[in-house]
Amino acid sequence: MTEIYLRLVDRILTPILLLIAIFLFLRGHDLPGGGFIAGLVAAAAIELTILALGSAATRDRYGPWLAPLLGIGLMVAVTAALIGMAGGGFFLGRWIQFEVAGETLKLGTPQLFDLGVMLVVVGMAVTYLLRLSEAAETPPPSTKHRETRP
């Protein structure tokens, strides 16, 4: 009963949360948000899946992406910083501006860096959550001397 309920929540809430994460990420440079927050929201979304479907199913869904996520995130961040070196400074912002539907959109290395931050945050949080959930789903090796004190 609860499981179906959770599945439903997963189906609806997870995509919404992921969308929110992307939204928070994109607006982060101008309004509250940014890589950290977006990453944390995305991690929360994935945690929801873990709670709903269990760690094995979550791994099936996100598995191939999760293992190298930390590496990718770090690489993206470092690369963004290194691009700046072309202009003579580590972390020097390089920007591309273009017009879309009358709005000036700007994409730059700081945002690329922010993306790296987001990926690392997601990677870190999910590593922990997934692994711990896995461990929690298997019974502990010996329960013999588990004490009963609250």
Binding site: D30, G93, V117
Partner: peptide, 24 residues
């Protein structure tokens, strides 16, 4: 210079992005 109006975020990803790099 930083092209963002969220000053905190600009500090995090640009002005003191090096800190953030260490942090991640």
């Amino acid at each position: 210079i930083g092209r963002g109006s969220n000053v905190v975020n600009v500090i995090l990803v640009d002005i003191r992005g090096y800190d953030t790099l260490g942090e991640i």
